[in-house]
Every structure is written in structure tokens, then in C-alpha cells.
Write a protein that binds this DNA or RNA. Structure first.
Lengths: 124, 124
DNA sequence: CGTTCTAGGTGCACCATACACATACCCGGT
DNA sequence: ACCGGGTATGTGTATGGTGCACCTAGAACG
């Protein structure tokens, strides 16, 4: 349907949303990449690229937002478990505030959108 | 402050948010680029790059979401006025639905964020 | 004649994202 | 002994949105 040139145009979640999600999940408890990959689906991110997730975790490690340590698994390969640092917890608060602003902007958008659709209904 | 390596990390509005905003503004009424540049600030987008805005309008024109026509101005250079097409109106509806899903995801994030902060308060 | 406001536009580099692919451990089946 | 499948962590690379700088040009005003 619509079959226009704009059908592959993806409007999606906030830019850099992956990191805030990882920070939140790690605030809920220490975890490792493969487990986060499962849990992150519940936050709206679907089909998360494992490569990007691991890269993001490594980057946050180097920036001091998380701390990592290798731990053997009872069944399977060793895991690199991540733990939130104080800096990371602070960033989580900042990011949560920013996402709140985003939500407010989306609310404004929604209100004005409903207004124009209502007007069209009235006119017709 | 925080002065970490992650201070320039920008978590922001949804990807491709510019186009939905332009579609909404044009649904509210025919307009031209320079005017849209002023109005779009009210939708959460700050410091919109004029180049990107004009490029986005041109792209939507080529994709058939909007229709453009040159019109002389009473004072100043001529304006390229944009008008929403039926395809554009349809896309506005689709995009508004997508943004609704994004808002829902952000609500989930917010709830879980408040939950973890509350837990920390209780523990302490 | 130069400045300012209006109006539209190009060039380019950065970086997040997406997609494919690689490595390695462990276990169960045949 | 071998092979597939689930677990777990990565690398390589191209695309594309975004931001920044810069450019053109008309109209009004002193």
C-alpha cells in the first residue's frame, strides 16, 4: 500500500536510545550483554543489533559509566558482566530528564495533530 | 559539570523527527520554508538547521508528500510555498501513530526509571 | 552604496544505525 | 567422534540523518 517512494522511511525511537535503555536495565541489576539483549525488547527496542549493543556497552565502559568484569558461566561461555557506576547512575538521571522533555514534545505534537484532524472532521 | 567523556552525548528527539513536524505544520496550513523555520521551534525542535529543513522539504516534494509552487512576496524575495498532498496527509496519520508508540515506550521507560529510584530510596 | 532582513540553497564531515559475518564455549543427539 | 544448536561476545563496513559552514539573491532603508 501507499507504495510511494517514502515507504521505507523510518520514524522511530529517540536518537541514542540504546544507551539510556542499557543504563536503566543495569540500574535494575547487574547483568551481561546477552541477557540485556533479551530484556531490552521490553523497552520498545525491537530487533536490537547485538553488535551495536556490545559496542555501546564497551563505549560506556571506557567512559566510566559502567564497570565490567569477566565471570564464568555455569553452562556456556564466560560472560562479561556489567555494573553501573556512580557516574552512570548520575547520567541515568540526566538522561531520564531529557527523555521527559522528549515525551513532553511528543505530547505537544499529539495535541496539535488531533486538533488538525478534528478541524478537518468539522469542515467536512 | 560531570566533565566525563560522555558529556557531549546527545539523547534527543526521535530520528527523522523533522519530517513529521513539517507534515504537521503543513497540515495546519500552507506555508513556506522560512516561515516553517520559525514555527517549528514550538514543536520541541530547537536550532533547526535551515539547510536540512529546505532539503527535507525538497525531498518530500520529490516523494509526492507535498506540492510546491513559487509565489512572489509583497516584501522580499519570492517564496516557494508548500502544500500537503493526499499522500502527505496519509503519511501524517501513519507517522502520528508511530510517534504514539514511541510515546508509549517512553512512558514504560519512565515508569521503570521511577521504580528503580524509589527502590534505592527505600533501601537507604 | 552598504547593511539588514527575508528566502532559499549547496558542500561536507561526522557518527549512529543496520546488516553481515566471525569466533568460541558448552551440551545433546546419532 | 562428529555435528548442530544455543550461548556469548565481538569486528567490518556501508548507508544515511544530522549539524556546521558557507553561498546566492531580492527588497527595504538610511
Amino acid at each position: 500500500m501507499t507504495s510511494s517512494a517514502a515507504d521505507d522511511f523510518a520514524v522511530g525511537l529517540p536518537r541514542n536510545y540504546l544507551r539510556p535503555c542499557l543504563l536503566l536495565l543495569l540500574a535494575e541489576g547487574t547483568s551481561h550483554g546477552y541477557e540485556l539483549l533479551d530484556q531490552i525488547g521490553a523497552l520498545g527496542l525491537e530487533k536490537v543489533d547485538p553488535g551495536g549493543l556490545y559496542r555501546s556497552l564497551r563505549a560506556m565502559d571506557e567512559e566510566g559509566l559502567v564497570r565490567s568484569s569477566w565471570e564464568p558461566s555455569v553452562s556456556g561461555p564466560a560472560r562479561r558482566t556489567y555494573e553501573l557506576t556512580d557516574d552512570g547512575r548520575e547520567w541515568l538521571h540526566v538522561v531520564a530528564g531529557t527523555l521527559g522533555e522528549v515525551a513532553r514534545s511528543l505530547a505537544v505534537y499529539r495535541r496539535r495533530y488531533q486538533q488538525v484532524t478534528d478541524e478537518q472532521r468539522v469542515i467536512r
